[in-house]
Design a protein around this nucleic acid. Structure first.
Lengths: 203, 203, 203, 203
DNA sequence: CATGAATGAGAGTTCATTCAT
DNA sequence: GATGAATGAACTCTCATTCAT
């Protein structure tokens, strides 16, 4: 039985090696410029090998984005559950930002890139996406129940919040902060977040 | 001089034909799938001709984004100058959204796509980008002078605002609103904007 | 010995499973598009397994054509032996046609396809081919002895006859009857055969 | 004007170089094994170049088969028009054989190969094929009008004749005469044709 | 000014086959 | 006896780009 287990493990490791390499290249060069050959070369395997683990490029990148959603959801899950709703909401914002900064490649794949999303939205990735979305909407509801955001449409509110963090992150990831000095980026980003938080407080 | 003038004019027209065709194809198929040959074919010219007007694909698309910045700036300039600062700020938000919805291809090129940004930040596009940016920062300053946004860092504030609209638009352009029904998108987007505006009012 | 026998039998069954699957795929998609992996997948075995039974693709398809020759010969053998030679000759023609229509894939492999012929002409298939050929030549001889085909070279005559049926069949199998309506094909084919028979009668 | 003409000519020559090379390789290795790369290499050009003259592999081989049909028709047209119908019919048979022997690659493409026929039958090749077919049927009609082939269906008769020559030729081209010595092939083939002719005479 | 001709590089993908286990 | 893992070679085709004219 040890053999079967080891094989299982090796297979998984290979899959992960591919995903890891793909992520890396993808982060450096973007989707279109990351080729199957490239990935294979970087892994020091033959291109054919990748096709043993993934049907085609789309499937590989879809798997990648699923991986991303898993990670994203686990980030969100780290938010302490016992905070007052508003604090928890703000904490989620910070975590969101952290995820994007820690894993810009995944974020890009999941929320910006157009390419591999076209197929399958029925799979795990989609579900995790929905679950993440409802983490946000339910905390917004709790805030409202707690007396915040009086008279506001919770869906629009949630979307507004998400849009803001998405905007911050997207500027960063797609390198559109060139009008600021590099060393300012961090302050700018987190400063904006804190202003946004304050703004929410006053609602 | 008539001759020289005509030649000048013809050159300009050719340039514009190329840009127009490139925009069209790019809007339909995205950056990576818009090839030099594609453009040439659509124009009924030879691919080589394009190289007489643009050094390479990057430069062509950079020129395109410049065009976009010109348009963007002219949109922003349409905001009535005689409104109270807060109203003008909100109006700019609406205009921003309108630009992105009217010209998603340009928006993508200017603010999302990584590809053609790699070169030159010195050209006209950059300058217009900066000018647009200062439209925002100066109106924010005016708001502050008018008693709003007390004690806040105007740069961070401006960036926060920009991030929000950018986020809204990017979700839309990159097709990440699939968890909502199609017919909800418009309401969601503008609803979020109005909530955001209200939020700013209370700051 | 029971064990050895069972193993022997299992080996044979496996061989036949492979051949059966290969035939099926080959008939559906043609030689070049039938890949070892395809066959393996359809069998739900690994590609490697096939190589335990056949040296390479060519050998597999050669074995297949042997199978075809066996079947072909058994078709020919069904011709009643007690007919007058001319009738028997005509009957063989009809049987030939029937074989080709019943098993176009085999016919193709045996008599049209270039690929798997390149190897071995020594094996069983060759022998059966020769035997089939001599079924024809000997019946032609009998006809001559019976007073038919006066003064004609029996080998050339036999070849002429074979060529005709081969031609009919090949047009059909390789889909070169498009200038006729589909529903005419059958009548055309058998009509031609009957005309040919009549022609032979008058020789 | 000399320039335009020369360019025109060069272009045509290039096209013909490609077709020539493709034919050659195709004759040696068959359709599936003749790759665009192969052709390019044999021409000492880059593969891309071929695509300047032919949209894809299919189109290249379709052009080839058209070329073949043109040639085929011109062979048939060489049959003297002033012979008595039966003699003309026999002459056409000999010419048919000659075409196939002179240009086995074309014959294969036109009448045996399955691959590139699937598309376009509206073009020139199809038309020439039809015209060739009607050369045969009309001569058969003439023979009937001249008192031959009494009471026979002319279409079936024509198809019977065509099948015979096609069979002879196909055996030859697809190398299925291995049971005869090489030096016999010619005699066998033409002998069969003469027997067939005699047979027709007696009808 | 514009082009036709050509190319090297590279894309994604599939193939027959081998080898260690 | 059978397989899972892997590969090198090949496939068709498209790309951005250059150069002689």
């Amino acid at each position: 039985m040890g053999i079967a287990e080891r094989k299982e493990r090796e297979k998984k490791e290979m899959r992960e090696l591919i995903l890891r390499t793909a992520t890396k290249l993808f982060m450096e060069n973007g989707y279109e410029k990351t080729s199957m050959r490239n990935i294979a070369e970087a892994m020091e395997y033959s291109p054919t090998t990748i096709y043993l683990y993934f049907k085609d490029k789309n499937e590989l990148f879809y798997a990648l984005s699923e991986e991303g959603f898993r990670m994203f959801f686990s980030y969100l899950s780290q938010a302490p559950k016992d905070l007052p709703p508003m604090e928890r909401l703000k904490e989620l914002g910070r975590i969101y930002l952290k995820f994007a900064i820690d894993h810009p490649g995944y974020y890009d794949l999941m929320f910006i890139l157009r390419a591999p999303m076209e197929s399958h939205h029925t799979a795990e990735g989609w579900e995790l996406g929905m679950k993440s979305h409802s983490v946000l909407t339910s905390i917004v509801h709790e805030c409202i129940n707690g007396g915040h955001f009086k008279g506001m449409n919770p869906d629009q509110l949630a979307f507004m919040i998400w849009s803001f963090v998405h905007g911050v992150v997207t500027f960063q990831i797609r390198d559109r902060l060139k009008m600021y000095e590099d060393h300012e980026h961090h302050e700018l980003t987190y400063g904006a977040l804190e202003i946004f938080n304050e703004m929410m407080d006053r609602l």
